[in-house]
Design a binder for these strands. Structure first.
Lengths: 352, 352
DNA sequence: TTGCGCTGAACAAACGATTGCTTTATCGTA
DNA sequence: TACGATAAAGCAATCGTTTGTTCAGCGCAA
C-alpha cells in the first residue's frame, strides 16, 4: 500500500497537516525553512503521491472527465477522443471512455454511473435531438459539452462544424459536375447531423433550381451496412440518381460497396460524396470525395471548454463552430486521387 | 448537488447507517420490515446513488480500470479497447483510456497518475521487453494484465496470440507461393511482437532450407511511415526480395504504398503479408493478406483476468494464448479478394 | 421483581486528505 | 517585567460511506 500522510507525519514527527501544506505549497501558512526542507526531502524519497480518492472526496473534484460516444472503433470517434485526451492531459485530467453503440439506454446508464462516480464533466458525442439524457445533464447541473451533434439548439455548450454549409458545399460540388439527379443518404432525422446535412443538401438543390425528388432522400443511419441498404433502395429506382451525397464517410463507403455490387462504376456511373474525411477515406480506391472537419480539434476544443466550465463554475453556454472544407477525390472526379495521395505520403515522412 | 446519506437519514428520521444497510442489502443486520419498506420507497423516489468517491475511499476500491495503449486511432487498439470495455462493464467497472504514443515517459507518467487515482487495475498494451514500468507495476503490486506484447517472459498475466506460430504461418505461405527471397519488416526488437515474429520468420525460412540474408531483415517500427521507410531500404537493394512479411498491418500498408511509388505491382512484383487483420486490411486494393488475431477477444479476456485478479486478490500469473490464423487476400495471390469480400458484406447485412 | 435474550436501530470509528482556527513559543518593545 | 505581535505548527472538523459494536426496549421465564 502506498504511504499516507499520517505515516509520513510519524516519520517526520510533525502533524499531517504540515506535510499536506508543504506538499501543496499552501501559501496561507508559512513553514520554517528547515522543516520545509526536511519534509520535502522526505516527500521525494518516499515518492509520496496523495490518494486521489481521498483528495477527490475532500475537494469535491476528481480531475476525471468522461467521453461518451457511439463506438470508438469508428475512426471518427477515435480521433475525437485523442483530441479530448490531448486537451485534458495538460490540465491534469484523465479521461474515461464510454461506448453507447447508439443505444439511448446504454447512454443513460453510462451517464448515471459517471455521475455517481463524480466525474468533473462529460463530453457527449452521441446525443440526439431533444435528448432526455442531455436534459438530465442540464438538470443535474453536470458540466458537459456536446460535440458534433447538438440536442436542443443553443441550450448546451457545443463544438462542431457548420453542417448546413458543409452539406451545401458537397451538394454544390456534385451540381457543378453536372449531376441533376442527386440522391441523399440522410442518417437519422432525429440526429442534428442528419437533419442539418439533409437541409443543406435540399437548400442547395433548390438554390440551383434543381427539382427535389423525395424518393431520392432516404434515412440510412450511420453505419456502413445502413449506407449500403439505403443506397440499394435508391439505386434500384427506375430512374436512379447519378450521384449520392452521404451523411458520413462510413455511410458513403457502404454505398460504394453497394454500387459495385450492382455493377456500377464509381465515379463514372455514380459519383459519391461522404462527410468527415476519416483517414480511411483517402485509402479507398477510388479515394472518397468528402467534407473535411477538424476532428481532433473538435475533441481538444471540447476539453478546453469543459475544463473552463468546471474551473470557473459558470454554466454559460458557448459555441465553437469550425468551417468544413471540401476534399475532392476519385469518387467524384476520375483521376483526382494522384495529387492528394502523394502529398499525404510526403507529409507522413516529414513527421517521422 | 446529489442527495447524501445524511440528508436521507434526516428525512426518514433514522440513522444514516440504517439507510446504508438497506441500500446495500446488508445481511449482517436485520431491519424491521416496515422501516425497510419506508426507506426503500425513499431511495426510489430520491433516486439515491451513493457517492462513488466516498465509497471508493471507504472500500478501497474504485471500480475503475485503465487501458494504456500507444494510440487509439490505430484501429487495432480501438478494437482492443472495445473488448476491454465490453468485458468490464458487465462487472460494474468503468474504463480510463490513456495513450502513450509509444513514449516510455508518457507511459510512466500515466501509470503513476493512475496509481494515485487508485484505479483497481491496469491493462497495458504498450509494454516493451524488460519494461521498467511493468516492473514498477509488479513492485507496487498493482493488478495488471499485459496484452499483445509481453515484457519479461512469464512474469505477468498475459493475453495474446502465439506470435511465433503466426509468423511461421505467414512466412510459410510466402514460401509455398514460391518466393525465395523474402524480406521482413521487424518492428522493434525491444518489443516482444517484433522479436517473436522475427524469430518465427527466420525459423520458418531455416526449416524450409532457404538462405537468410541479414540485409532483408530490418527494424521498421510499427507506423505506416516506418514501414514505408524500411521497405524502401530493402526494395532498393540490387537483389531485392519478391515478398515481404511485415510485423503489423500498418507497417505492411506503408510497404504497399512504397512499392507502388517504386513502380512495383502488388502482388505480381512484390507479395506482402501483414499481421493482425485490422478492418482496414480487407478494404485496401488489393486486400492485404494477413494473420488474423482475435483483437476484441484480447480485450475481453484481459478484462476478465484482471477483474478476477482484483476480486480474488491473488497475484498468480496466468496466460491466455490465442491461435493466429492466416487470411489470404490479393496482396499475395492475385484475384484472391473476391470471395472474402462478398462474404464479409453478407455478414454485415445479417447483423443489421 | 429481577434478569436474560432478542430485535431493531443508533453510535462511532474509520478511509486519507484539506484547511480554518487555535495554541505555543519566541522576540521586541513599552 | 509584562504585554502584544508574530511565526510555526498542532488541532479538529469535514467530505460521504461502511460496518463492528453498543444500546434501548420489550417479552418472558424464574
Amino acid at each position: 500500500m502506498p504511504i499516507t500522510l499520517k505515516q509520513l507525519a510519524q516519520k517526520a514527527e510533525v502533524h499531517p497537516s504540515t506535510i499536506s501544506r508543504v506538499a501543496n505549497n499552501d501559501p496561507s501558512l508559512r513553514i520554517a525553512p528547515d522543516t520545509r526542507e526536511r519534509i520535502e526531502a522526505l516527500l521525494r524519497e518516499t515518492e509520496y503521491r496523495p490518494n486521489g480518492v481521498a483528495r477527490g472526496l475532500k475537494l469535491r473534484q476528481t480531475f476525471v472527465l468522461a467521453v461518451v460516444i457511439p463506438d470508438v472503433t469508428n475512426p471518427f470517434f477515435a480521433a475525437l477522443f485523442r483530441g479530448v485526451e490531448d486537451g485534458a492531459l495538460s490540465r491534469g485530467y484523465n479521461v474515461l471512455l464510454c461506448n453507447t453503440d447508439g443505444s439511448p439506454d446504454r447512454q443513460r446508464s453510462h451517464l448515471q454511473s459517471l455521475h455517481a462516480r463524480r466525474v468533473d464533466g462529460i463530453i457527449l458525442a452521441s446525443s440526439v435531438l431533444k435528448d432526455p439524457s442531455v436534459r438530465w445533464l442540464r438538470h443535474q447541473r453536470i458540466p458537459h459539452v456536446l460535440v458534433n451533434r447538438f440536442s436542443d439548439e443553443g441550450q448546451d455548450t457545443f463544438v462542431g462544424a457548420d453542417d448546413l454549409l458543409g452539406a451545401r458545399v458537397a451538394t454544390r460540388h456534385l451540381v457543378e459536375l453536372g449531376h441533376r439527379r442527386i440522391g441523399h443518404l440522410a442518417g437519422k432525422l432525429t440526429v442534428s447531423t442528419g437533419l442539418m446535412r439533409r437541409r443543406g443538401c435540399l437548400e442547395e438543390l433548390e438554390a440551383r433550381g434543381l427539382p427535389i425528388d423525395p424518393a431520392l432522400v432516404v434515412e440510412s443511419g450511420y453505419t456502413e451496412a445502413g449506407g449500403a441498404k439505403a443506397a440499394e433502395r435508391i439505386l434500384s429506382l427506375p430512374d436512379r440518381p447519378t450521384a449520392i451525397f452521404a451523411v458520413t464517410d462510413m455511410t458513403a463507403i457502404g454505398a460504394c460497396t453497394m454500387a459495385r455490387r450492382l455493377g456500377l462504376r464509381v465515379p463514372e456511373d455514380l459519383a459519391i460524396v461522404g462527410y468527415n474525411d476519416i483517414p480511411l477515406a483517402s485509402r479507398l480506391v477510388p479515394g472518397l470525395t468528402t467534407v473535411r472537419v477538424p476532428i481532433h480539434e473538435f475533441g481538444a476544443a471540447a476539453a478546453r471548454l469543459l475544463i473552463d466550465q468546471i474551473v470557473v463554475g459558470d454554466a454559460s453556454r458557448r459555441r465553437v463552430i469550425f468551417n468544413p472544407e471540401l476534399v475532392v477525390r476519385g469518387s467524384t472526379v476520375a483521376g483526382a486521387d494522384d495529387g492528394p495521395l502523394r502529398a499525404q505520403h510526403a507529409a507522413a515522412f516529414a513527421t517521422e
